[in-house]
Amino acid sequence: MTTSALSLAPDDADALHARYQRDGVIQVDGLLSDAEVETVRAAFMFQVETDHRAVGAVDEVPADDVLARYPRFMNPHRRPDLEIGRVARTLMTDPRILDVVTALVGPVYGAQSMFYFKPPGARGQAMHQDNYFLRAHPETCVAAWMAIDDCDAANGGLGVVPGSHTLEVACPEEADLTESFTRGLVRPPEGLSAVQTEMRAGDVLFFHGSTVHGSLPNTTVDRFRRSLIFHYVPQASIEIARPYLPLVAPDGSEVNVAEALGGGPCGEGWEGAAH
Rank of each mutant, 00 (worst) to 15 (best):
R187Q: 15
R187W: 03
P189L: 02
P189R: 07
P189F: 03
P189N: 11
E190F: 05
E190W: 04
E190A: 15
L192Y: 11
L192D: 08
L192S: 12
S193P: 05
S193D: 15
S193C: 11
V195Y: 14
V195T: 13
V195H: 15
Q196V: 02
T197K: 02
T197H: 06
E198V: 05
E198P: 01
M199H: 08
M199E: 13
M199W: 08
R200H: 14
R200N: 14
R200M: 14
R200L: 14
A201H: 00
D203E: 07
D203A: 13
V204G: 13
L205K: 02
L205N: 05
L205Y: 03
H208D: 15
G209W: 05
G209T: 02
S210P: 09
S210F: 07
T211I: 12
T211C: 11
V212C: 12
V212F: 09
V212W: 06
G214S: 04
G214C: 06
G214F: 08
S215D: 01
L216I: 10
L216M: 08
L216P: 02
P217N: 09
P217S: 09
T219H: 11
T220H: 08
T220P: 04
V221M: 11
V221F: 09
V221T: 14
D222H: 03
D222R: 00
D222P: 04
F224K: 01
F224L: 02
F224W: 02
R225Y: 01
R226S: 09
R226M: 13
R226A: 13
L228G: 11
